[in-house]
Nucleic acid binder design. Structure first.
Lengths: 354, 354
DNA sequence: GCTAATCTCTGTATCGATACAGACTGGATC
DNA sequence: GATCCAGTCTGTATCGATACAGAGATTAGC
């Protein structure tokens, strides 16, 4: 059995409190005694105060949780999520805080338990869509959190860092509309919860449950409405899951239809890259010229020459962690909107004559 | 104040133990009473047993630590590390365990404390070089760990997952030697702790402290020794830090010297990509034809056409976590050597005539 | 109808530390 | 010489739960 603080106290002949102070409040005892205690501890193989016991007594843990609604392993697959994590990590590092990545089981009961049992002082919630239950648990536990996606029923004063999804998406769509495109497909992940991959009929954008997706689709629609292209004329394509192959599969059939789209606006770079993959997979003689835009500006986007909307990923993570770790006194400062920028590369161009 | 388990017990009129059982051992009480207790808990806003208190009493935490010797934010920059993390995440997910990422401060005292204070049941040690102190702390705490890099003074029976660095490196070098290259540079991160960037004179490979780097350099040297090129004839180039720009900067001057190398063998893909960057940065008319090899086969390598040694990154993480989470009864099974494979792409070719 | 076995539930000890109020010293102050 | 004070150290209460042995109440078995 590992020795406890008590064992060290007994060995030196002082009280438990004094040993505790030797570790946590050096100013509370003489340097000489402190040395004697630390020596004895070394001798006994005492590894320092037990972190769990210390947390219990002190009332805080010294680590923050990061919550992903999807599979934890997925988070490492998504380049945007990785940059976000890097930002959280950088902030955590500065604060001497650890990051706990909590995997959420598929079954809600199990997932709930994971959030209930996480030993953390607060959460950065990366992307809670309809997973309101997770926020309920966090609130019930009385833990602070920062969300990074606009939510439909956010409390006033809730800490948040994100972007104006709608305006950002609109900027990309305006660029494409400005190039003359009128037959356009909008590609997004999980437009409707359990819809199959491929084109989808939606009465309106309000039907989309996920606020981020809804915001981006609205922005796309806004820009086209302005040039006279109504919602009904836009093709919405659903992709189940944010991955390149899924996007490629979902979009593939679209170009073989009569009057195929001349542009595809994707809700993320990953999806857009999937579209480029799908196009590249076709024989050169049967490869339509399609303008493609992404969203996020992940590192891969530049290499692929993808026109996209840049949002500062690392910054988002860093600020999320900082809002959590030292909350601004001013409530308004707890709501951060980051800037976005349209990055035009060569994946977009004028409508081909044909 | 959040209600405690006691508060729920009082409200229902049962003992604390019974409430505890309602959460953790449902078979210990009647379904009816359990419902009554959970109802009362909901009513009071009791969020379930406090994770910290529970951990203290139960003696385990339900999360595993991942230790990086370098900056946590760096870990997310290195594509190999990210794949490794994904693997750990996948295994953790299956076990319903969380992952704690512990940032290590630059100052060893602070870094020690971080390891001492991490509330985890064990560690996956990603890349502890000379950071033997970290392992000392872990051992002192009596926690299990799995290391992923061969270490000079590993205990017998220590759990490990990795590759045969030397043989793997040798395969890349043999390929390059087979192409006829004889003037070769070996590029590695932190060949000597505080050496400057650029070429370096080393009496022998034994002087390299980091076992992984030493293993790879030895493998490179092995293959060239076989074709009559001795250690002294090889140029060792030091890069401080595993990053593309650092590699590009370290190698840049090399090609302007008399008798420049016709091949560069890098200790990682990231470094190799840096070399390609450095070459691409030169004007086309002054761009020497140099064969370049990497190590790891990260996703970016394929796109760049980099010849490299593949090692299964995700697998490594997954197995590391699994060795930690359910240790094999058989000690020998705790030492896993993963396969590697030479992947030849177009970054290597015969020596140019000139 | 009696013992044994089963099902529920309770009580006490304990996990390993920290907070906080107070006790003891040995000088400095007047 | 009494008073005050800063510097050290101690003791007790507490953080919020779970383990484990055992007490009653039921049911089963014969």
């Amino acid at each position: 059995m590992k020795p406890t603080l008590q064992a060290v106290a007994d060995a030196v002949g002082v009280s438990r409190s004094t040993v505790s102070n030797a570790y946590s409040r050096p100013d509370q005892l003489s340097a000489a005694l402190r040395e004697r205690i630390l020596d004895a501890a070394r001798q006994l193989g005492y590894p320092g105060p037990n972190p769990t016991a210390r947390s219990l007594r002190r009332g805080f843990v010294g680590s923050i949780g990061v919550l992903f609604t999807s599979q934890l392993s997925y988070a490492f697959t998504d380049p945007f999520a990785v940059r976000f994590l890097a930002g959280v990590g950088a902030a955590a590092e500065r604060h001497g805080t650890s990051m706990l990545l909590v995997p959420l089981a598929r079954a809600v009961t199990d997932a709930r338990r994971a959030v209930e049992n996480a030993a953390v002082d607060g959460f950065c919630v990366y992307c809670v869509a309809d997973e309101e239950w997770a926020l309920d648990v966090i609130r019930e536990r009385g833990l602070p959190f920062v969300s990074t996606a606009a939510r439909d029923n956010a409390d006033a004063g809730e800490r948040f860092v994100g972007i104006d999804e709608r305006a950002a998406a609109r900027s990309a769509a305006a660029h494409v509309a400005g190039l003359g495109h009128r037959r356009v497909a909008l590609l997004a992940d999980s437009v409707l919860p359990d819809a199959p991959a491929g084109p989808l009929t939606l009465a309106g954008v309000d039907q989309v449950p996920h606020p981020t997706t809804r915001g981006r689709l609205s922005g796309f629609a806004d820009a086209f409405a302005e040039v006279g292209v109504g919602w009904a004329e836009l093709t919405v394509v659903n992709v189940p899951g944010n991955s390149r192959p899924a996007a490629a599969a979902a979009i593939a059939g679209l170009f073989d239809q009569p009057a195929p789209p001349t542009a595809v606006l994707a809700g993320s770079d990953v999806l857009a890259l999937g579209v480029l993959d799908a196009l590249a997979a076709r024989p050169a003689h049967d490869r339509p010229t399609v303008s493609v835009t992404g969203f996020d500006d992940v590192p891969e986007a530049a290499a692929a020459g993808l026109t996209t909307v840049r949002q500062p990923a690392e910054e988002k993570g860093r600020i999320a962690a900082e809002l959590l770790l030292d909350p601004p006194a001013d409530a308004a400062a707890g709501h951060v909107l980051l800037p976005t920028a349209l990055v035009v590369r060569n994946s977009t161009g004028p409508v081909p004559r044909s």
